[in-house]
């Protein structure tokens, strides 16, 4: 049995892989900056203004303000998850970039850690692009919403690590569709995003809190943007940190098993 839990030895060279992806991202920045902007507008208009006309308030909070943190959290999830599934898979399998990198002083652990850091960074960049739009519509509160930026890194690292586990075991790029449709899409709907978790049957509430990473990210994000800070924030944060640590380690070990033969 391979050691999925052994702590990988990572050096600061991981940032070189991160830097490589950053350079490529900014070279095509026009393409990359557009989607989060559009996404922010689309959600605000379609759901906020559309549904918001009928659902005026949830728990005394204007509906648009209620979903604004969810828009941010979903964006954190999507950008990191898709970067470290399809993006990383293409670099690993089609471009053979990882093979080229491990022929240099970089180790496979460095390479995967760099990819994960990059996935998290991509989440941060998306949030940074979306924040001004949401702020302009007055649906998030200054200055606590600025904390969404570091939170995006942590949440991004969590989803990047989960994504990389799928990338490490997927037989082909097509089978990456399964986690996207069976995990990411339902999670975007049922994690207290567009309606409160409390509307679900109690059992599902527990399941959501126990197993859906997005639930915790949305909860913290909402506390920051309303703002409505409570002690629960710490519990959500601990949950995210623990899950991130576990998947971060497992992702790197699984990738090592796949690529080092």
């Amino acid at each position: 049995m391979y050691r999925f839990w052994s702590i990988p030895r990572i050096t600061r060279r991981a940032w070189k892989v991160w830097h490589r992806n950053l350079v490529v991202f900014f070279r095509t920045w026009k393409v990359n900056f557009f989607p989060p902007l559009i996404e922010a507008f689309l959600y605000l208009f379609a759901i906020g203004m559309g549904i918001g006309t009928y659902v005026k308030e949830i728990d005394g909070i204007p509906y648009v303000n209620f979903i604004a943190p969810a828009i941010l959290a979903i964006s954190v999830m999507n950008s990191a998850f898709f970067e470290c599934t399809y993006g990383s898979y293409v670099r690993m399998y089609y471009q053979k970039s990882f093979d080229a990198m491990i022929a240099t002083p970089l180790s496979i652990e460095d390479v995967i850690a760099g990819e994960l850091l990059w996935g998290a960074t991509r989440s941060v960049l998306y949030v940074i692009i979306m924040l001004p739009v949401l702020a302009a519509f007055g649906v998030i509160s200054f200055p606590t919403y600025l904390l969404a930026i570091p939170l995006a890194f942590l949440g991004g690292l969590m989803f990047a690590s989960i994504a990389m586990c799928f990338t490490a075991i997927t037989p082909s790029i097509d089978t990456l569709n399964y986690p996207s449709f069976l995990l990411i899409t339902p999670m975007a709907l049922f994690s207290g995003t567009f309606f409160p978790l409390t509307l679900l049957p109690v059992l599902f509430q527990y399941i959501g809190l126990a197993f859906l990473p997005l639930t915790h990210l949305v909860a913290i994000m909402r506390m920051l943007t309303l703002p409505a800070l409570t002690g629960l924030l710490v519990l959500h944060l601990i949950w995210i940190i623990l899950v991130t640590a576990v998947f971060y380690i497992v992702a790197i070990n699984l990738m090592r098993r796949r690529l080092i033969v």
Partner: peptide, 28 residues
């Protein structure tokens, strides 16, 4: 070490110059 692998694995996201330059970074 300098390695020429059997299977070509240049980085398609970069130009010729970019490939060599990016690779140099990996060697500090």
């Amino acid at each position: 070490l300098g390695v020429v692998p059997q299977e070509t694995n240049l980085d398609p996201d970069f130009t010729c110059y970019g490939n060599l330059f990016t690779y140099s970074r990996y060697f500090d």
